[in-house]
């Protein structure tokens, strides 16, 4: 399969001297479901944000869909960004706006400044938004204000906003870290479904090893800003996982038997 994303030798050093990422290397193929796991503060979020340049890497190169993300100008970067949907831990919706207005925000990258300012969307776009919301099971909430939704529903609106961009890649920054187990399953099932049936590549940061094992094709383990594991879910061993988290054998809660149910 074609390579969609190539991360080459990426390092990030923050202004205060802390090295968040050092020499990160990996590739993601089209249609893959990749989980990035690792302890808190390992640089997972930074890594994800370096891909669409929400954070600028200090050195290295990222090639997404044949575009050199770090060599394009501002205009072209916007075009790259609209091909990458992003889902956040805290949903990041505009609370005072309705569900469909929030979902349609995903179209702004395609619209002229004036149409975006006035919130003028075409019938087609509205229909597409309604369809995506329907797939995510939010058809009854279309005109509800988004602060009236539950956490799981908010996250689904977040996913809808990303999907309306018609993205090739979905970056999810700990999408289920603030959700209860039930909503977490719904969200992960949707993400897996998006990957399998729509062919959209998904890269997701996760805290839950179990979830990563169950849903992903491949796991990238990050610790101390370095990639310490990169391999398929079938090949990962208990020892690898303990190495990723830098902890002793038997001190973590996960179950290798549960892998690959989705």
């Amino acid at each position: 399969m074609k390579t969609l994303l190539e991360v080459k030798n990426v390092s990030k050093q923050f202004g205060n001297g802390t090295k968040a990422l050092s020499n990160i290397d990996f590739t993601v193929k089209e249609g893959e479901f990749v989980s990035i796991i690792g302890p808190s503060g390992a640089g997972k979020s930074t890594l994800l944000r370096c891909i669409n340049r929400m954070i600028d890497a200090t050195s290295g190169e990222i090639i997404f869909d044949n575009d050199h993300v770090y060599k394009v100008n501002k205009r072209e970067l916007k075009k790259v960004r609209r091909k990458i949907g992003m889902v956040f831990q805290h949903y990041n919706l505009v609370n005072r706006l309705s569900v469909i207005e929030n979902a349609l925000h995903g179209r702004l990258g395609y619209k002229s400044t004036l149409a975006g300012i006035l919130g003028l969307y075409s019938e087609e776009e509205k229909l597409q938004a309604a369809k995506v919301l329907q797939i995510l099971g939010l058809e009854d909430q279309i005109y509800k204000r988004s602060d009236q939704l539950s956490g799981g529903q908010k996250q689904r609106v977040g996913i809808a906003r990303a999907l309306i961009q018609n993205p090739k890649l979905l970056l999810c920054d700990e999408p289920i870290a603030s959700l209860d187990p039930n909503s977490s399953k719904v969200i992960m099932d949707h993400l897996r479904n998006i990957c399998s049936s729509m062919g959209i590549t998904v890269v997701v940061n996760l805290h839950q090893v179990d979830v990563a094992l169950k849903y992903s094709d491949r796991i990238i383990g990050v610790n101390g800003g370095k990639v310490v594991f990169n391999g398929t879910t079938q090949n990962i061993t208990s020892n690898d996982i303990h190495q990723i988290y830098g902890s002793d054998e038997g001190k973590l809660i996960f179950d290798l038997g549960g892998s690959h149910a989705g």
Binding site: M54, K78, Y91, L93, L97, G109, G116, I117, L118
Partner: peptide
Amino acid sequence: GAIEALQASGANWWQIVFQV
């Protein structure tokens, strides 16, 4: 967060001002 989300989707400054 909402500002970040719209930046990530390729929206420009004016759109973010009026939509967020």
